[in-house]
Measured scan of single mutants.
Amino acid sequence: MTSCHIAEEHIQKVAIFGGTHGNELTGVFLVKHWLENGAEIQRTGLEVKPFITNPRAVKKCTRYIDCDLNRIFDLENLGKKMSEDLPYEVRRAQEINHLFGPKDSEDSYDIIFDLHNTTSNMGCTLILEDSRNNFLIQMFHYIKTSLAPLPCYVYLIEHPSLKYATTRSIAKYPVGIEVGPQPQGVLRADILDQMRKMIKHALDFIHHFNEGKEFPPCAIEVYKIIEKVDYPRDENGEIAAIIHPNLQDQDWKPLHPGDPMFLTLDGKTIPLGGDCTVYPVFVNEAAYYEKKEAFAKTTKLTLNAKSIRCCLH
């Protein structure tokens, strides 16, 4: 018999989150649709729960009410004593943790798909938090293969000092899905179709896995975050240069030392320094102006996964 890495157990509980950011409308629209008619997301033997994560922000069509829901799922915020004085999103995070967690427990949901849009030209993107997770690498390989020839990129946010504390991190297997470009507060049919297909293929993978299909060893190309880059700023902290036209919409493309990065209003080009080629992502993302992030630098690498098969009882 072929030796293989056996994944822990079959997958039982899956959640699909929309509206973690209330103005990213593809996930909101799909989740609302699936709450009314969820036939397309159901798979035999699998509990799939669509869920609106930040209903107040969705109602106002804004990213958040008090603070970013997708950055506060750490033990400090989840452990705060519940009171009306807490920011709305912290209270909501505790409610979500109660419903789908608790985080880092045996009772937490197996998989959470968190649906997002970006204003950046990132196409279909899967966000991975753990480079050693054979199950998710296999799932992402399946999704990428199923979507081809449509490109699907994998963004690895594993980093020693950049801690995200994402909404989906309460699950055993957290999956971020990011599709763009799409303006905030807008629905685009092409973007919706791409996100819908990503979810379909992900659920198909889980179904095949649960039925005992063995997935042979595989490898995927990923883009691992190195650092986030702020806009150049003046002495008052105001933005002093904008994304250069040569960099705009060039997510995932190589940016070499000396290539144009920013452009000042008086026409001066600010190039990339250093001696390493990087791959920019979230270029000129609207939501990241407040976070002082013009783009993120990534490096390209390959992740390998062992063969996996479900432990059938």
Rank of each mutant, 00 (worst) to 15 (best):
T2Q: 13
T2L: 13
C4M: 13
I6W: 12
A7H: 13
Q12G: 12
K13D: 05
K13N: 13
I16Y: 01
I16F: 05
F17G: 03
G19K: 00
T20Q: 03
T20N: 04
G22L: 07
T26M: 03
T26K: 01
G27M: 01
G27R: 02
G27Q: 01
V28N: 06
V31H: 00
H33E: 12
H33A: 11
H33W: 12
W34G: 03
E36V: 09
E36I: 09
N37H: 11
G38V: 08
E40F: 05
Q42D: 13
Q42Y: 11
R43Q: 05
R43E: 03
T44Y: 14
T44N: 14
G45P: 05
K49P: 00
K49G: 03
F51N: 02
N54C: 04
P55T: 15
P55H: 15
K59C: 08
K60Q: 11
K60M: 14
C61P: 05
C61K: 07
R63W: 04
R63M: 10
R63G: 09
R63Q: 14
I65W: 09
I65R: 05
D66V: 04
C67Q: 10
D68E: 12
I72D: 08
F73I: 08
F73E: 14
D74V: 07
E76D: 14
N77E: 13
L78G: 12
L78R: 10
K80C: 09
K80R: 13
K81F: 13
E84R: 11
Y88W: 14
Y88G: 08
V90N: 14
V90K: 08
R92W: 05
A93S: 09
E95V: 08
E95I: 12
L99H: 11
F100L: 09
K103Y: 13
D104G: 13
E106T: 08
Y109R: 02
Y109M: 09
D110W: 00
D110V: 01
I112H: 02
N117H: 00
T118H: 04
N121T: 06
M122I: 12
G123Y: 04
C124D: 01
T125E: 01
I127K: 15
L128A: 03
R132M: 12
N134R: 04
L136M: 15
I137N: 00
Q138P: 00
M139S: 01
F140T: 05
H141L: 02
Y142A: 04
I143C: 01
L147N: 02
P151C: 06
C152R: 00
Y153M: 12
V154S: 03
L156H: 06
L156Q: 05
L156W: 14
I157Y: 12
E158P: 07
S161P: 13
Y164M: 07
Y164K: 15
A165Q: 11
R168Y: 12
S169Q: 10
I170T: 06
A171K: 02
A171E: 00
A171G: 13
K172D: 04
V175Y: 01
E178K: 08
V179T: 05
G180I: 00
P181R: 02
P183S: 11
D190G: 06
I191S: 04
L192E: 02
L192V: 14
D193K: 09
D193I: 14
K197V: 11
A202H: 02
L203D: 01
F205E: 00
F205C: 01
F205H: 00
H207N: 14
H208I: 13
H208T: 08
N210R: 13
G212M: 05
E214L: 09
F215H: 03
F215Q: 00
P217C: 06
I220K: 00
I220N: 00
E221H: 04
E221N: 06
Y223G: 03
Y223E: 00
K224L: 02
I225V: 15
I226T: 15
K228I: 15
D230A: 09
Y231D: 03
P232C: 03
P232I: 04
D234W: 05
G237V: 01
E238T: 08
I239S: 04
A241T: 04
H244Q: 01
H244M: 01
P245H: 05
N246L: 13
L247E: 02
L247P: 02
L247Q: 01
Q248D: 05
Q248S: 06
D251L: 01
P254C: 09
P254I: 05
P254K: 05
L255F: 09
H256W: 06
P257H: 04
G258Q: 11
P260E: 06
P260K: 04
M261Q: 06
M261N: 03
T264S: 12
L265F: 14
T269R: 05
I270P: 02
P271W: 06
P271D: 11
L272R: 02
Y279C: 05
P280M: 02
V281C: 12
V283Y: 02
V283S: 02
E285Y: 02
E285L: 03
A286P: 08
A287S: 14
K291N: 14
K291Y: 09
A294N: 02
K297S: 15
T299E: 11
L303D: 00
L303V: 07
N304V: 12
N304A: 11
N304D: 06
K306A: 14
I308L: 10
I308D: 02
R309D: 04
R309Y: 06
R309F: 05
C310G: 12
C310V: 15
C311F: 08
L312A: 11
L312R: 14
H313I: 12
